[in-house]
Nucleic acid binder design. Structure first.
Length: 447
DNA sequence: TCTGGGGTCCTAGGACCC
DNA sequence: TCTGGGGTCCTAGGACCC
């Protein structure tokens, strides 16, 4: 049976989320910043039209953006994560099965639905998600994931004409588009590969589709060969309904300000370790390896006022797999002591967990068994349950009481959908409903 | 002063084994 | 004249994605 994939992708996802509870921003340019208010990572249509580039450091455009009346937001992952869930639950009702690919997009498996009016199906998806979640999406449908991605990209460009849905079932439908698509615009071809492909006169998606497959594999990799096949309608990328358990878990942050004390770094690392442990337990696993890394500013040595730069990492192997936050924190302390160097201004640190085992699946060596922590699993379970409920979380003293490394989020919007205290208020006027929200500072409703 | 965080997949090369 | 070869496993690093 031939395959058929739909890619459903939210338009300007973070910016759209911010706008959802701020109808006053509906026609205004909106941008969302990365952690620490570093770079621009999401732009509304109006902000793109102003020419703000994706990924630009915010400080480079701050004053200008203010003059242009751009609404600026810090990343609010509590809000985006919750709205993403609502979108995915909605899609599950509209498709036989979906594969969640990222926070704002999902593939739907439409195999067996080829005789349907797929354009009509795509329109229904757009309408339903808009009605249930208030978020605009575009839909691309094609026989392979790579083509569905491209169809979605085209649909985004055409949505002004009332479209937003592109369906390709025959090669004649997608071939004209391949000729117009730059090779770097293909899913899986980045800047580096693009440059190398262009050296071989492969400039467009059509060129890649027509390229000699064994040469592609030899000169690049099997991944590039697969992309070329997919552009010809031959599905190489399978469908994964269940998200595979993560093979590694990484928790890291750039700090809101530089850290110079070992104790502050230790607290940050312990905090990341506890976050990572929570994710590990959520996927019912234990890990045998923990890596920490610390580093100064990457541009420290080359900046205007050069500072000494330092980066290092170290790994710990547990005798037996563990998911106990206390084991991970102990390892963090030991590892930090081995790579800590005084006299540097540290900007970033992180914890990586690897080498996972399901509980009970590990054969310990006969004579080297770690002394078990009594009732470890039960304790962690209770902590996770309490922390999932929201409100004040349970934390370990090692995470610190007054973190010195909190990130900068000067433009954070309320947690409209995940915190009772920040719920938006709606007051009904004589003619129209006006959306209100509480000001966190005063608890008074403000428009 | 100011440049994110969290992932995956693939390959090359070294260690080790028989 | 001339030092085996083939296989597996692991890790580091590169490239990509959102």
């Amino acid at each position: 049976m031939s395959r058929c994939y739909a890619l459903v992708d939210c338009n300007s996802f973070y910016a759209s989320c911010e706008r959802l509870f701020r109808p006053d921003l509906r026609q205004r340019p909106v941008i969302v910043l990365s952690n620490n208010d570093g770079c621009v990572v999401s732009l509304s249509r109006e902000a793109k039209d102003l020419g703000i580039p994706m990924g630009v450091p915010y400080h480079q455009i701050r004053d200008w953006a203010q003059q242009q009346g751009v609404a600026v937001f810090s990343s609010n992952y509590a809000l985006y994560g919750d709205l993403s869930n609502r979108v995915m639950r909605t899609l599950e009702q509209l498709a036989p099965r979906i594969e969640i690919y990222s926070i704002d997009e999902a593939f739907a498996d439409l195999g067996g639905m080829q005789r349907w009016d797929l354009t009509q199906w795509g329109r229904q998806v757009r309408q339903t998600v808009l009605r249930h979640c208030g978020l605009p999406v575009c839909v691309g449908i094609a026989p392979t994931k790579t083509l569905a991605k491209l169809a979605n990209h085209v649909a985004k460009g055409q949505r002004a004409q009332g479209g937003g849905v592109i369906v390709w079932q025959q090669a004649a439908q997608w071939q004209p588009q391949l000729a117009q698509t730059e090779v770097e615009a293909i899913w899986g071809i980045g800047r580096r590969l693009g440059r190398q492909l262009r050296l071989l006169q492969i400039d467009s998606a059509a060129d890649l589709a027509a390229a000699h497959l064994p040469t592609l594999r030899k000169q690049f990799s099997v991944s590039v060969e697969r992309i070329a096949r997919e552009l010809n309608g031959v599905a190489c990328l399978g469908y994964a309904q269940m998200p595979a358990a993560r093979a590694q878990i990484l928790c890291s942050r750039s700090f809101g300000r530089r850290l110079t004390q070992q104790q502050d770094l230790a607290e940050a690392l312990c905090h990341f370790a506890c976050q990572a442990a929570e994710k590990l337990r959520a996927q019912q696993q234990r890990c045998r390896e923990l890596t920490i890394f610390i580093r100064t500013h990457p541009f420290a040595a080359s900046g205007q006022t050069p500072r000494p730069a330092y980066a290092n990492q170290a790994a710990w192997r547990f005798l037996e797999p563990t998911a106990d936050s206390r084991d991970l924190m102990q390892a963090c302390h030991a590892l930090l002591a081995s790579i800590w160097r005084p006299g540097y201004q540290y900007l970033k640190a992180g914890v990586i967990l690897r080498d996972f085992y399901a509980a009970g699946s590990f054969q310990p060596e006969l004579f080297v068994q770690a002394p078990p922590r009594p009732r470890s699993a039960e304790l962690m379970q209770v902590i996770d349950r309490i922390n999932r409920r929201g409100g004040a979380p349970i934390r370990f003293a090692g995470q610190g009481l007054d973190p010195q490394w909190q990130m900068r989020r000067e433009h954070l919007s309320p947690a409209y959908t995940t915190d009772w205290r920040q719920l938006p208020l709606v007051t009904l006027g004589p003619c129209a409903a006006t959306l209100m929200r509480r000001s966190p500072a005063t608890e008074n409703p403000v428009p």
